[in-house]
């Protein structure tokens, strides 16, 4: 009885699915989905190799500091770094006084517990990077976690920063409706090809590095990507170090467990 019922239920679901499949297949064949500019011209991120990659990765602090400089001088005009506190910068090699000086450059509202007033005064190392007021259209995303919040991570950041170009002529020929709207910028690494952010890194030497590295656009983009990997995952080095200790211990312990297992079962067929 239950089997007759189950066969009926099974046929019911199958019939409904077959019906959906038939209609879907029919429209797929009669009007095959047209190619769009996005699925023809969108590109996967370029290769980017950073010191923090892989299970042995450690940050290249020189590069992270250069990236922080690029962030400060370029990105921070529009983008926040809400999750990061000034004190965190000690981890990328700044000392207490430098951290204090960096913090003091920002005006941050502080609540005075005695008077109940909120006053804008100099940032302190314990403060987080303050909100950035952006006057233009749209909302520039917070960058603290951007390296984890985008498919491709740092490679994506690097590719978008260096990927601005004129819209290819054949794109316009094939998809005349897909002309980049005014105020947007063509970038094949961006999800819908048209990004609101104007090219931030426009010329070599836009920042001047203290460590003598040549500030090409490509270099600056790589450096800021490295910095944003750090802001997104400041504990990366601790994680890698702890990971090796744990794995080596586990492999050793599992080896012992295997020997004990063989030992217990010795002579017992199973």
């Amino acid at each position: 009885m239950i089997r007759i019922f189950s066969i009926l239920v099974g046929l019911f679901f199958s019939a409904a699915l077959l019906f959906s499949f038939g209609k879907g297949a029919y429209s797929y064949i009669s009007e095959p989905p047209a190619a769009t500019a996005v699925n023809v011209y969108h590109k996967e991120p370029k290769e980017l190799a950073l010191a923090s990659d892989g299970p042995l990765g450690k940050f290249d602090m020189q590069q992270v500091q250069r990236g922080f400089q690029v962030y400060t001088e370029v990105c921070s005009n529009c983008h926040m770094l809400h999750q990061v506190a000034f004190r965190d910068l000690k981890a990328i090699g700044y000392n207490d006084d430098e951290v204090k000086a960096i913090a003091a450059k920002h005006k941050i509202p502080h609540y005075d517990p005695k008077t109940g007033e909120v006053k804008n005064d100099n940032g302190m190392p314990t403060d987080h990077f303050p909100p950035v007021v952006y006057g233009g259209q749209g909302t520039p995303p917070d960058l603290s976690l951007i390296a984890k919040a985008r498919e491709g991570g740092p490679a994506y950041i690097y590719s978008v920063l260096t990927g601005y170009q004129d819209q290819p002529a054949d794109l316009l020929a094939k998809f005349p409706d897909s002309k980049t709207p005014d105020g947007l910028h063509y970038n094949p690494y961006f999800a819908n090809l048209n990004i609101a952010m104007p090219p931030p890194l426009t010329s070599d030497g836009q920042v001047s590095y203290k460590d003598g590295t040549k500030p090409t656009v490509d270099q600056m983009a790589q450096d800021v990507a490295a910095f944003l990997v750090w802001t997104a995952e400041p504990k990366l080095e601790n994680r890698h170090q702890a990971g090796w200790a744990v794995l080596i211990f586990l492999i050793f312990a599992t080896g012992l467990a295997y020997m004990a297992y063989q030992n217990v079962w010795a002579g017992k067929k199973h």
């Binding site: 211990f249 467990a257 030992n263």
Partner: peptide, 29 residues
């Protein structure tokens, strides 16, 4: 029952040692 005790002293000690080591490793973990 099916597994006769290993008579040689060395054998017994080695078996015990592995089991104790495995349990200790679990404890350390």
């Amino acid at each position: 029952p099916e597994h006769a005790p290993v008579v040689t002293d060395g054998g017994v000690r080695r078996r015990d040692f592995i089991n104790i080591a495995a349990v200790s490793a679990a404890g350390v973990g």
